[in-house]
Every structure is written in C-alpha cells, then in structure tokens.
Design a protein around this nucleic acid. Sequence first.
RNA 1: GGAGAGGUCGCAUAGUUGGUCUAGUGCGCGCGACUCGAAAUCGCGUAUGCCGCAAGGCAUCGAGGGUUCGAAUCCCUCCCUCUCCGCCA
Length: 425
Amino acid sequence: MLDIKILRDDPEKVKLACKNKNADVDIDRVLTLDSERRRLRGEIDELNQERKKAAQAKDIEEGKRLKGYGSELEAQLNAIETEFTTLMLSIPNLPSDDTPVGKDEAENVVLRNWGEPPEFDFVPKDHLTIGSALGLIDSEKAVQVSGVRFTYLKGAAVLLQYALAQLAFSVLTDQDELQAIIKKAKLSVSAKPFTPVAPPLMIRPDVFQKMARLEPKEERYYIPSDDAFLIGSAEHTLGPLHMGETLKEAELPARYVAFTPAFRREAGSYGKDTKGILRLHQFDKVEMESFSTPDNGLAEQDFFVALQEHFMQTLDLPYQVVMTCTGDQGDPDARHLDIETWMPGQGKYRETHSADYMTDYQARRLNTKVKRADGSLSFVHMNDATAFAVGRTLIAILENYQNADGSVTVPEALAELVGFGLLTA
RNA sequence: GGAGAGGUCGCAUAGUUGGUCUAGUGCGCGCGACUCGAAAUCGCGUAUGCCGCAAGGCAUCGAGGGUUCGAAUCCCUCCCUCUCCGCCA
C-alpha cells in the first residue's frame, strides 16, 4: 500500500505512475474519500468527547440525549473507509526514478551483457531433447501422473539441482565471499551473511494479501478445506517473517535465503513454453529476501543483482541484465531487474532471475517497522530476488554446455560439488 | 477427529459484583544518580494510529456487532492460539 501522504502531496505523480504501470485507479476519487473521512472522523471525535464527558460526570440525562447521535456518521464513515481502503490497495507502488517508461516487456531496457553465446559446429538441441536422451527429464510419465506442466527430474539432474542450492547457500552464508562480491561490484552495503530458512509452503489469505502477491488469484493454488494457498515463491512466506514487528536499526539488513518449491497455475499462459521444464506448475528455487532501512533499500537491490551475476559468472553462463519498464513491473515493485540467460535451444535470452525492490509498499501492510538510531520509526524497505531458479538454470547448463555427441559438460564449479564432469547416456 | 482453556501496552501478568482503566505490577529497554569502573540499588521515562501550528482531542484491551448514560469487564458472531486424548510422518 502506498503512503497516503504521497497522494495528498503530489497526486499528479501518483496518477502518472498509475498510467505508466497500466493501472486504472481513480486518484481524484481517492482524494475526495480521504478528505471526507478526515472530516467525518473529526465530527465523530467531537461527539465522542461530549459523550465521554457526560459518561464520566455520570450525567445520565445528557448521555441519553447524546446517545445514538453519531451512529449515522459512523455508518457513513464505515462506507467511505471501505471504498477508500479498496482503492488504496489497488494503487501500485511508484516506479523508481531510473525505471524506464514503457507499455510492456518489449520496452524493457538491456543494461549490460556478460559472456558470449557459445558457437557450435553442429545444430544445438533444446534442453528437452538433450535431457530426455540422457534420462534426466521424464515429462511423459509426469503428465500421466500429475498432468501437464509437471515433470520428473532424474539422476544427475537431481544431484545438480542440490549442487546449485549448495553453491548458493555456501556463498550467501559466507561473509568473506559476500565482501569480495561487494568490493568487485563497487557497492557500499553491509556484508552481513544471509540466514538460511526453510519456510512454510502454504500461506493464509490475509497474509498473502499483505504481501500484495495474492492477486491475480487465478495464478494461485488454493486449498479450500483449509483456506490456504500454496506459495508461488519463497518470497511469499519469507516477507512476512517480521510481520507486526519493530526491528532495531542495528539488526538491519536482515537477510534470508530459502530453497523451496514454487507453485504456479500459469493461468493465461496456455500454449506458451509447453515443451520441457521452462514453465512448470511446480519448480524449485533458491530465493533471497532482505529487510533494510529506507536509505539502503536501493543499494540492497543492486547487491542482489551483483549476487545473481556472480552466480551466473561462476557457472560461466552468458546473460544480460534487464531493467523492466513500468508496464512490465509488478504492482508492489518500485524497481525490477531481470537476469536473462542465453538459451541456445531457443536462440534467445530467457528470464532466469528477477530482483524486486518494493520500498515500504509491502512493509506498510505487514506492519514491519524499524526504530532508527535517532529514535524515529519508519517502515522497513524490502527486497526480494532469485538466487537460482533451478529448472531454468539446468536448461541453460544443458543447452550451453552440450557437446556434439549428445553429452553435456558439467560447469566446473558444479563438477567439484557433484564429483563428475560429464553427463552421458 | 474428540474434549477443554484462552487472546490485555516488547515479553510476562493484574484486571471478570460494568464507571476512579488506556489500563496496575514485574521483566526488558532508555536516560540519570551512586561507583575508579561494573554488578547491585535508587530515580525518571518507555504502545501505535489519526486530527491539530500548538495546547490538546479521538481511536485501539484478537476482529466485527449488540446491551448501557457509560464496557477490557455483560451478550452474539467470526478469527486465532494453546493444552489433553486419538491418528500420524
């Protein structure tokens, strides 16, 4: 939720943000409701004061006279509050100053490239062909058992999956490694290590709403018997980790990393990416989340992107860093960057990571605050980013490291962890 | 699944014949005194939101509704938590 003060101070800015983010919200209506509710609140306050005075003085006659006097105003206020809140919740976060304005993903901006797409002296195959031949992916059986967009990963693919997680966890919990990455990226952020978390995979509707991730509901798996949703990302249950708390400034940044499945119904993407494991109803992901002071939120996001780049460089996979434009940003995002990795099977870059900076948009709903060193209170700023989307990283590995004979070379950093350097049938 | 208990200001608790309770006490925390320093001790302070330049006012004792001149205290609905038994990885 946006700070109402921003709306009062600069409604034009909010209107522009809504327009740029393709959000249709009647800002003038919100402002009208806001002043109405303040006016009513004031009148009710005055009435209450009189009632209280009468009650305290045990002036029964005066009390009886005032009884029920404000109920009509209360009813009005209730109706206004309801509409006001609904509208407020539908206003997206303001995009950061450096977010490019654009309608959709076509207008996203590539910030930089790393690595060169590999040259093959044969026609490169796609990951499903490679993976099926090597016995790593069995989608046919998964369809029979669970339906489309599910898969069995088998054999070395599973070992690689855990090796990727291990790689991420070992870096993220090592202060010296983090310090080196910060130095290389010329950032000035804390090198505080991440706390590993194994979070719940189900979430209550009210908390999901506070994370501003419940919508679109059609995208979520819902379990009616328990009124619970399956998470679509570890972010969904990592973000509420400090719900209702006031943290001390010295505790920030508070960083967490989790390795969990993510569940997505993929509503509206029928027919898109149906082959292979690029877009599944269930996939595994290592996710980073952080809570910081408002001053450090932006740098924290740059740090997360630096970590993502570090991981992909460690695997020696060619990628590009993309700044998402306003029209392609999520509602809670102020700034959104993606890492897109080269996929030779498709001959293009595909999203493997994202990094979302939410400012205080989620924290305001979650009521997660920080008591600053000067004693003041403010909402924390929150960041969330992928460390590894395991399935998509496996795709990139299979396709970029494939050999003419159908085998796949294992990236060195992973070979050390799994104990083998070549995937063969 | 069966039975019961309960949700109060960071934590723990007091408050259940309705008014002097927005709320006491202990712990924690902050400042100060004492001390060479510390512990201990003592003193003061210590929720959030909204309106207001301020003085101050209003709201909040899980949420919503009701009774009453007046509710943390009574009634109703809902939510949540805990305990015991059963079942179970």
